[in-house]
Amino acid sequence: MTSQTAASAHLRNVNKFYGPFQALKDVSLDIPPGKVTCLIGPSGSGKSTLLRCINVLELYDSGEVRIDDQLIGYDSPGGKVMAANRLREMRREIGMVFQQFNLWPHMTALQNVAEGLERVRGLKRPEAQARAREALAKVGLADKEDNHPSHLSGGQQQRVAIARAIAMEPRIMLFDEPTSALDPELVGEVLGVMKQLAAEGMTMVVVTHEMGFAAHVADRVVFMERGEIVATGSPRDVFNNPTDPRLASFLQGYRERNSLDF
């Protein structure tokens, strides 16, 4: 269903500053449609910033970000900041899932998912709720629609958050460390839902520390360090034959930390 309409995203020479600090340095990246692109790299390397420039939760300072061939963030390259209503239209096509879930605590699971369908897509409540139920069923939470977030486990909350995003029928999905706030035993259920989305042909950009997920589900892995893309390639290239020394040392550190867990 999503496969024909899946969007691509393209970053060209994107720069982002926080005051004097440069968080993204001339980043260029093509995100192919219907594929899973995983972003890995040390903390503070700019992964979240890159992701948030794609839906302009952070406005990049220069360069170009496109969804398919449409520029987002500015009216024209180097031009005026895009009008707010135009940006909102484009954001409907871009789903986002956050590390902290960011569910709305005063609403039930169903209301969390139906809210955007009503307010943004303008559906009548019964129709919005019917679609919200479908989305909840898809993430395996049909029986939890009346629960408020505080009465759901972390894994369930994140699945509701995914349902909230996919109910809007986005053409590309951004995930910012979707399992980092979860207890280890709850990680699997969220990754399971993400794999299912990937199998349906959704374009996905996933910032993750789950190297297992990146190795098995990603079509491409992108390694960032200090605001730059240092290496990209297939999971096999990146994980088995890291040519870049910084990537090799990052992976080495990861392996050591994770074998110490035993």
Binding site: L57, N85, R91, F98, L103, G116, V120, A165
Partner: peptide, 11 residues
């Protein structure tokens, strides 16, 4: 909270 709403295009 507001970011999640902005991300789905809420006014």
């Amino acid at each position: 909270q507001a970011e999640a709403a902005a991300a789905i295009g809420m006014a």
